[in-house]
Amino acid sequence: MNIDFNFLLSLSVLFPFIVCLYRFKTMNKNYRPFAILMFASLFTELISNYLAVKYKTNLAFLNFFSLFESCVWVYQFHRWGFWQKKSGQRFKMLLVLMFMAWALDNFILSNIGSSNRYYLLTYYFGLVMLSIRQINQDMMNGKRAMDESGRLIICTGILLFFTFGIVRESFTIFEEGLSRPAKFKISLIISIANLIANIIYGFGACYIPKQKNWPDFFNTFAKKVE
């Protein structure tokens, strides 16, 4: 019953999923990693719930997903032009570091079948920092109000979800001796944060700028030019 309730809350990802699916072809290509992440999140929720019900554990699957998710988020920031200088180099370096941290947590500090909370804590923390800096960059250079800018809304969602993620993961370090109902209550933090973040992501997806389509006029003009 408890798993079902968390699962239902996590299905709120359907909102950004539908918006991204509807707008995928027309959206600015620089936002596609976000859309792919929303698609992947829905499938992950379904698969991980299936695994949890059938095999009583989904941790190995979630550990692999956390690596994939973190890489796509970082790629999303890269596409947004986060690193202004030596962008490609910094992005690749970060990917290598992330993989090393993930491998360290999953194969040396603990095993792939248990929660990789140290990697999650580090990655959540890094992502919160990235989104704060991206918000600041957009505040400086943005010409649209923040509540009308897809990127700023998405960054707000990241900030909210992953800050609660940090809080939740910090508490899980000390939850070993807790009873099942108490653990469930703690897990609710992330489920509710997930619900709010998904709603924010959905609105963010609505404001993702369209791909720059040259109108018919351009085609007529281009033909004349050629």
Binding site: I135, M139, G142, K143, R144, A145, M146, D147, T156, L159
Partner: peptide, 12 residues
Amino acid sequence: IISLVRFHRRYV
């Protein structure tokens, strides 16, 4: 977040 949105609106 709310103060960020409000001040950014005013700034824009």
